[in-house]
Write a protein that binds this DNA or RNA. Structure first.
Lengths: 345, 345
DNA sequence: TTGTAGGCGTTATCAT
DNA sequence: ATGATAACGCCTACAA
């Protein structure tokens, strides 16, 4: 096609190769700068030439190349989202909140699953940064030192959602896990002597620690003694909870605070399957209040977290940072609540 | 910093501005071409110079700029994923399959929620194409003509997951919805005279039609008459199903085939809430066999779809297309099954 | 209001 | 094996 010597308009239109801002400029009889201006909504363009250019753009079906634009402007209008598992309803809800706000501010999100593993997290963060994302939303239940080190090497704005930075360097959006966990533990302490804490992997890590503290405070206030044997670590999945039911039951506990809804559903069903009556013989309170808490019978009592909002607010915060607005307060705490349903008395 | 006149190594190292392939080249005493070669694993580099370059890269903490690379190579190693709602567990599972395979082949995914709306779909497809994604996975229950028109304008590889192209132009990965729907309807026809079909919005659209056909075939084979009044359209969400329970019950149906798990859960709970005994008085079979089918009491019988695989296979197919391998067969049909659980007799 | 020209950080094609 | 030197498609002062 390039060899075609019939240099007329038809030629240009038929041309199936990439059409650039330059083609539009030539066809419209203006400079590429002008085309760039109309494409970017710059006001300094005479109305008639704007029309003319717009016409040509439509006729040639021209689409600005965002990659080239990104290279020239050093902005990609893309943000990275590191997420443990998009198939987990808790994180999926956050992701939806993030994407909606991102869309509102003309950003796209590139999502990378990390499975909450250090190695993968570092990997995806680096490839995301290599892709020049304008910002990063990091979802996790925990923030390892390695990942913190990685974060400190970049000037790309980052916000944490659902995890807190112990050093308080990185802005984050959360609820107060300590207080929330304490409250529900207190609730359970009304009717129970042995209350289990079913937490994610690494209860001893930063974020689990917050919950652990709340749990322990509640025990202390209730005059109950803390026992390692009542603390369970698990991965975040339904089967994991199901499997755990046996052990929790064997521990002698008559109630449990669970930090992930899918795990809670698993625990509930596992217990019920083996003949345990919930809430009569065993009470459960879960943590995320995702829709699935209403799916079960009995339904699951839960700490009430504004899931969608956690995502939405963190993205909103990120837009401010990307816009170099000074943000007041590095740590945003969203209000939480408690929804009593069928799994607790 | 740029004004600093002390032109020594310290200067370069301290420099906090972007460090480029050019900096590495200068520092290593080679040309940028050579640096590019080692970064890209080109074999034509003497081992000693490779070492030298690698050293400098580490010392300067150099990271290749993927945007510049994308502009020069015309490849972004990024694929777009258009998805109705990432918070819906069905789509979330597909997304996970997609991302895992994408990661395996060194691609990242940029996800865009479309809510299944024509307008948004067209919008996001265009911005994704503008971002020069190397390929596109389009998730939907339906493929509108408008979106087809949009697809025909680009040479970017596209694959459909969970939706079929009536014109059979665009490669797709699915199960056989007609057969699957027919099978479960037949199952319900054993014990029921009036069977409802609870489908997504636009049952009359392409994809809904496949299911509708299976539903009708089963009715015919069972000697039952089709009635418009037994076909329900709804959006894909738990509340939608919950709300629908009343109407379904009022229709006189004693069984329902549901095309979305969350809707099925809603229907189930709505029915049970109003005193209907499932499955004794009302049978339900849902369609996606996502984990939530095990959350409920009774558990939900379901068509068994390989959710993760649907995503994984479509991404695999896309990698082949992006790699310009000729793919055999535009339409991949994955096997489906049926899992009998508590909601059907 | 419009045009010119120099990047942006790589890749890729030729030479050497 | 290595090095110049164009692209790649757009943005953005700076001029006019």
């Amino acid at each position: 096609m390039k060899k075609d010597t019939t240099e007329n308009k038809e030629y240009v239109i038929m041309e199936s190769e990439t059409i650039t801002i330059y083609d539009v400029a030539r066809e419209a009889g203006v400079s590429m700068a002008t085309v760039s201006r109309v494409v970017n909504g710059n006001q300094n363009v005479k109305e008639t030439t704007r029309r003319k250019v717009l016409d040509v753009i439509e006729r040639l079906d021209y689409r600005p190349n965002a990659v080239a634009r990104g290279l020239a402007s050093k902005k990609t209008t893309t943000v990275g989202v590191v997420i443990p598992d998009i198939a987990n309803s808790y994180f999926a809800s956050l992701a939806r909140g993030i994407d909606d706000i991102a869309t509102m501010y003309k950003y796209n999100i590139v999502i990378a699953n990390s499975d909450g593993e250090d190695g993968k997290e570092i990997n995806v963060v680096n490839t995301l940064l290599a892709k020049q994302v304008d910002g990063l939303v990091f979802l996790a239940h925990n923030l390892s030192d390695k990942i913190r080190a990685e974060f400190s090497r970049t000037r790309t704005p980052i916000v944490l959602a659902g995890a807190v930075d112990p050093e308080d360097q990185i802005p984050s959006v959360n609820i107060d896990y300590t207080v929330a966990t304490k409250e529900v533990t207190l609730e359970l302490a009304k009717n129970n002597q042995k209350i289990a804490l079913v937490a994610g992997p690494m209860v001893n890590a930063i974020n689990g620690k917050e919950r652990l503290v709340g749990y322990q405070e509640a025990l202390a206030e209730s005059g109950l003694t803390f026992s390692e044997g009542l603390v369970f670590e698990t991965t975040y999945s339904y089967p994991a909870g199901l499997k755990l039911a046996e052990r929790v039951k064997a521990s002698g506990a008559t109630a449990a605070v669970v930090t992930d809804d899918e795990v809670a559903v698993g625990l509930l069903n596992g217990l019920v399957n083996s003949g345990v009556k919930v809430p009569e013989e065993f009470e459960i309170i879960t943590a995320n209040n995702s829709v699935i808490t209403e799916f079960t019978r009995p339904t699951l009592s839960s700490i009430e977290q504004p899931l969608y909002d956690l995502g939405a607010v963190s993205m909103r915060l990120l837009t401010k940072m990307m816009n170099k607005e000074e943000v007041a307060g590095k740590r945003v705490i969203l209000p939480h609540g408690f929804v009593k349903r069928g799994s607790s008395k």
